[in-house]
C-alpha cells in the first residue's frame, strides 16, 4: 500500500523538525501511541493501540529514523505486529519552508499481513489517512501550545 501527501504547518522549519524528531513529542502526537522507548540512537520500541474497525488491536514494534538530514528530511522505518497481523513499511518525510511556515510532505509504502490484509486491506488506506490527519492535527496543537508556553 502506497501512501503520500503533504501538510502545511504554521511553525517554522527548524521548529517543526525538532518536534518531528523528538520521541516525547512523537509519542504524544501519534494517535494510540502508548509507548515510544529509545533503544539506541534514533531507534525506538513502540506500542501502538489502534481502535479502527477490523484493524483494531495493540501493535508492538520497532521504529527508526534514518538518513537524517536536518532540517530537511529523514526516512522512517517501522515494523510492528499484533493480534490482527503485522505492518511493515517506510516513509520519507521532507520539510520545506513555504509561506512562512513549513510544508511537510511524505511518501511511503507499507505492507500488511494476517487479518489486516485479508479483512482490513481495503480499509487500510482510509485508516492510514485518518491516523495521519490526527497526527498532524496533534502536531499543530503541540507546536501552538509550545509557542504559547514560551511567550
Amino acid at each position: 500500500m502506497k501512501i503520500s501527501g503533504e501538510h502545511q504547518l504554521k511553525a517554522p522549519v527548524e521548529k517543526a523538525w525538532k518536534a518531528l524528531t523528538d520521541p516525547a513529542i512523537l509519542q504524544k502526537i501519534t494517535p494510540g501511541c502508548e509507548r515510544l522507548q529509545p533503544v539506541g540512537p534514533d531507534e525506538f520500541e513502540a506500542t501502538l493501540k489502534l481502535g479502527v474497525a477490523l484493524v483494531k488491536g495493540t501493535y508492538k514494534g520497532k521504529l527508526a529514523l534514518r538518513e537524517k538530514t536536518p532540517p530537511e528530511s529523514y526516512r522512517l522505518v517501522m515494523e510492528g505486529s499484533g493480534a490482527p497481523g503485522f505492518v511493515k513499511g517506510e516513509a520519507t518525510l521532507r520539510l520545506r519552508e513555504q509561506e512562512g511556515g513549513t510544508l511537510v510532505s511524505y511518501e511511503g509504502d507499507a505492507q500488511v499481513g494476517g487479518a489486516i490484509a485479508s479483512v482490513g486491506q481495503r480499509l487500510m488506506e482510509g485508516v492510514a489517512r485518518m491516523v495521519l490527519s490526527q497526527f498532524f492535527r496533534n502536531l499543530e496543537k503541540e507546536l501552538g501550545r509550545k509557542k504559547e508556553g514560551k511567550s
Binding site: A117, S118, Q121
Partner: peptide, 14 residues
C-alpha cells in the same frame, strides 16, 4: 493472493 502471499479475498466482503 498478493505477491507476498497475503490472501486478499479473506472474507465474504471480498
Amino acid at each position: 493472493y498478493d505477491s507476498s502471499g497475503q490472501l486478499l479475498t479473506g472474507t465474504m466482503m471480498d
